[in-house]
Design a protein around this nucleic acid. Sequence first.
DNA 1: AACACGGGGGA
DNA 2: TCCCCAGTGTT
Length: 346
Amino acid sequence: MNSHIERNSQLLAWYGDIKRLLPWRITKDAYKIWISEIMLQQTRVEAVIPYFERFITKLPTLEALAMVDDETLYKLWEGLGYYRRARFLKEAAKVCMDTYNGRLPNTYKELLTLPGVGMYTAAAIASIAFDQAVPAVDGNVLRVYARVHVCDFDIAKEKTKRFVFEELQQEVDPNNPGDYNQAMMELGSQVCIGNGTPRCNICPIASSCSAYKQGLQNSLPVKSKLKERRKQNHTILILRKDHMYYVHKRTKGILMEHMYEFMNIEHVLKKKEIEQLIDPMYGIVKIKKFTSHTHVYSHVEWNMQAYVIDVKQIDDHFVSWQMIQEKLPMAGAMKKFIQEIEKETS
DNA sequence: AACACGGGGGA
DNA sequence: TCCCCAGTGTT
C-alpha cells in the first residue's frame, strides 16, 4: 500500500505554506542545525530562539565550541535546563575536531555515536543537513503516528518509539526527508496537538487519518503517567558583606551539577541552628528571614526558605554581584531570590 | 525497562 | 493543577 505517498504530498504542501522562518531553518550549516536540535530536546521553539541566537553569536563554529571554557558555556545555557546537554555539546565538538576533520559527521550512524545525540537528533541532523532519509521520531511524531494509524501502543515506552521508527522508515519522503521530518513535527505542535483538542478541522491530512475517521482523535495517543515527584525542604542562606555574596559550585553527579548557588541546606533549619552553623565561620552581624519559593524539577520539588545574613568576614567563596550576573552560571532555583535582592538593593 | 535530568507554557 | 515539550544516557 502506498497511501502514505498522497498523505506526504498533502503534508509537504501544507508545510510549504505555513512554515515558520526559524533561525535554524534559514541555513544548511550542520553545526547550527545540530546546536538547534540539542537545544530543542524537551524544550519549546519559543524558549530556544533567544538562546540559539546568543549561542551562535558567541560560538559560531565547531572549533570555538570545542575550546570554550566551561563557565562561559554554562552561562550561555543558564535557564534553558538539562545542563548536561551543554557538556555533551562541547564533548562532541572535541570528537568532531579530533576524528572528523573538524566537521560534523554526515551520516545517521556516525552522528549517533556523538554524546548527547540519540535516535531523534541523529535523524534530524542527517535529514535536515545531509538529506538522508531517516525518520526523526519525537513526541510530536509519535502522537501524529498514533492518530493517523490508530495505534494504541503506549508512546512512553521505548519499544513503541523503535516500532514507530521502523514504520516511518517506510514513509519518510526520500526526496525531501528534512522537510518531511520538520513537517511532521510542525503538524504535531501546531495542529495534531498533545495538550488540548486536536485541530482536525484545519489538518491537511485529516482525510487519511484513521483516528479522525473513527472519531478517536481525543483518546489517542495512549501514554502512561509519570512517577510522582518527591518533595524536599531546603534552607537557602544568602551570606553577604558589602556587595560580595557567598556562592559555591554544586558538586558533580547531582542535580544541576556545574551550576552555582547560594548556601543550600537540604532540610529545614531553625534560626538558632543557622546561627550555630554560620557564626563561628563568618561572624553574624544580622540575620533576616527572607522569602520562600518552590522550584519544580521533573522528578523532585524544592520548597525553599531563604535567609539573608550579613557577615563580618568573607573567604574565597564570596564573589561580587556583577560576577553572579555576568559570569557565573547560577542554578535556576536561585533566580527568584536573585531578582528580589536586585530589586531590594537598587 | 525504569529513572534522572529543567524549566516554562497552555488548558 | 496537570500535561506537554524537536530526548538522552545510565542503571
